[in-house]
Amino acid sequence: MSSIIETVDLVKEYSQGEKSLRVLKGINMKVEEGDFMAIMGPSGSGKSTLLNMIGALDKPTSGTVLIRGVDISTLSDNQLADLRSKEIGFIFQFFNLISRMKALGNVELPMVIAGVPRRERRERASKLLEMVGLGERMHHRPMELSGGEQQRVAIARALVNDPAVLLCDEVTGNLDSKTGQDIMQLMRNLNNEQGKTFVLITHDPVVAQSTDRLVTLHDGEIIGEKRVW
């Protein structure tokens, strides 16, 4: 299997006035196509920073991020945006849905950005909402939905442009354990049935145990990597 994402000596620093804060200290990591992997680590260890980096949302201070073999530092801002639009789906802890749009509208949004025609948008969005179990809730606004339902909308939104990789930042962190398990099951099915690649950040050892591969981050460095099975 070929690496879909690869980082080489990835360093990220934040400058805070005089001194600079080194958040990632040379990360070498590979995400293979079809992976279902977790990144764990204490708060502030740089997990979200790493995820943003491999999702082409942020630029490294030094080192390289290769997405499908392409060094993203060679891409323009517009090319990066297009890459995020087509190859990557982000799912966040706090769902980050647009509150004034209905579920359907939220799921359609990435397709609006990608320039998909209206009729196809409608069709794909409703199909995906049905798939995540929200066929009855398409016309509800986020505030009319439970946390679990909102996260399902967010998953549908992340999937709608058929990306290869889904990057999930503590997607179950804001849900109770039963709902969290359902969401995990949904993602696992997507991985099994559609071959979607998942990178999950989590604090929850139970979640981590249900993945195939676990990377442990500490203070900006990878301190452990193991196959869960």
Partner: peptide
Amino acid sequence: TREIGVLKAIGARSSD
């Protein structure tokens, strides 16, 4: 601001 961040995360260009 957060919404703009989301838009960019799901692939919106600056011009969008």
